[in-house]
Design a protein around this nucleic acid. Sequence first.
DNA 1: CACTAGATTTTCT
DNA 2: GAAAATCTAGTGG
Length: 213
Amino acid sequence: MNQNNETNPRKSPSLRRPLPREFYSLSPLVVAKDLIGKKLVRILESGDRLEGIIVETEAYGGSGDPASHAFRGQTPRNAVMFGEPGHVYVYFTYGSHHCLNLVTGRFRSELAGAVLVRALQPTKGINIMEELRGTKDVHKLANGPGKICQAMSVDLELNGCDAASRTSPIRMENQSIIPISTIRSSPRIGVTNGTDKIWRFYAKDSAFVSRRS
DNA sequence: CACTAGATTTTCT
DNA sequence: GAAAATCTAGTGG
């Protein structure tokens, strides 16, 4: 049987087009909430297609957000955060993990903004993700920012690529399986500064988020 | 379950 | 030198 959506006539072409750059051009707070329920698509070099529904995100600002990498200004690592919305910001942290972000518009008059993708509900290429992650528990394949990158083979080579491009190895597609009314917010996880900001968003009924309330 | 140590890069002090 | 937008394996209850 043919599982390739490119040839599925029931899927409208508009669903196959990646989310446009305008989607990312708003404030990180808006984009973080809007990304819940969208489909993250990763095309591996092998041509294999991995997909997951975003169920958890966090917004990061610039000079006004002490939890943000951009707080102290531009550096080689965070340079992508200061660039055009819609591009992918990948960083390496804690000596062993990669994290995936999408560059957004700016909060107020700040110079940088991004959204961290924190958890996915895997929907396609699950067997490949299991292999990359070394576990068969589907709820633990991508329920954390480091796990997403391991499950989808995301590393610094993808830093700066354009998620709004039709041919990008990472892009976003429209999807609407998560009702807006079921999105909740909370303080961000793992941050020690800026804990006053309620900038984490998640699907309250999803079993795929990194933490349940 | 809860808690802790260790993996080890980028950046700042 | 130390902390960080994290995760796992290990210990102990």
